[in-house]
């Protein structure tokens, strides 16, 4: 280093904004993936847990009477859609954890001292990371379900499944990131994740249809966001790709495939709008 080349880089080019945002988002995403590759246990556990659900729960109810399930399909086939959604949901629910650890260990401060072109890049990186992981895990579960004889949705069906999961993952990631900035520490965040995770699964149509539930639980399941993701996927597995058809008989009325997806879109947008003031304040 000589003194002559000791000059600050030229930052005057305003048009660089988009490229800067890409550069920082890519770098932050890369960091998360490096962590994943070197510490893959969460990914493995994230695939293993739903697999165990699928195998054990599928076996537990394999002798369920035919009248239990609409259309007389096997329980394993019915359960598949529920477990796929549950996998994506739990993965996204954990999205806030790395951010919380960065807050606690002071790594976030390192990011906040840097002249990021937008601090949204910190959020973008998390969303990209969690979405990729969740979709990857879901595809692994779908593959296993196929080998267990629980069916495969076909190519068009697969696209519908991925679209539905994407919408759910966006919504839940927003929620988790919001919690990561609102709660005081990772203990509290983990506590919330524990409390939310299983009840939302049980109070949805993942394990049993609404027709099988007591009325009050049926109501809960019919407003549970997981249900709106499970039903289009279950329909896709059943070979129904027409989104105009009614796929959910809720106590308050029938819901079509379009209805389910619209609700998921509204939920994603709503949650992102809800948490953005919080993020703006914390990342200002």
């Amino acid at each position: 280093m000589t003194s002559s080349d000791y000059v600050a880089f030229d930052y005057s080019d305003k048009k660089k904004g988009g490229a800067d945002l890409r550069q920082e988002t890519f770098a932050l995403t890369r960091r998360l993936f490096i962590q994943l590759v070197r510490r893959p246990s969460t990914l493995v556990a994230g695939v293993l847990q739903p697999l165990i659900w699928l195998v054990l729960f599928g076996a537990l109810f394999s002798k369920a009477p035919d009248s239990l399930l609409p259309g007389g399909i096997s329980y394993g086939r019915f359960l598949g859609a529920g477990v796929i959604v549950f996998t994506a949901f739990s993965g996204a629910l954990n999205a806030g954890l790395p951010v919380m650890f960065d807050r606690e260990f002071g790594f976030l401060n390192r990011l906040l001292v840097a002249p990021l072109s937008s601090r949204s890049s910190i959020i973008f990186a998390s969303v990209i990371y969690i979405t990729s992981i969740s979709l990857l895990q879901s595809i692994a579960i779908m593959g296993t379900a196929f080998f267990l004889g629980y069916g495969w949705p076909g190519f068009a069906g697969l696209l519908l499944v991925l679209l539905t999961l994407l919408l759910l993952v966006f919504a839940v990631t927003a929620l988790s990131l919001g919690l990561a900035f609102a709660l005081p520490g990772h203990i509290e965040l983990i506590a919330v994740i524990f409390v939310v995770n299983l009840p939302l699964l049980f109070a949805s149509t993942a394990l049993a249809p609404i027709s099988y539930m007591p009325a009050w639980l049926g109501w809960l399941a019919a407003v549970n966001p997981l249900t709106f993701a499970i039903e289009p996927i279950r329909a896709a597995y059943g070979g129904t790709l027409d989104l105009g058809l009614v796929i959910l008989h809720a106590p308050y009325g029938d819901v079509t495939g379009y209805g389910c997806l619209s609700i998921l879109i509204a939920l994603s947008l709503g949650l992102f709008l809800l948490i953005s003031p919080l993020l703006n304040r914390k990342l200002a």
Partner: peptide
């Protein structure tokens, strides 16, 4: 305009030093 070296060094234990510097460089564009 500024570089900040905090008292409590916040580093990512999983990354190598080189990767951390690359990340830092990208954050400063």
């Amino acid at each position: 305009q500024l570089g900040y070296v905090a008292q409590e060094v916040a580093i990512d234990k999983i990354l190598t030093g080189l990767e951390l510097l690359q990340l830092q460089g990208d954050l400063y564009h």
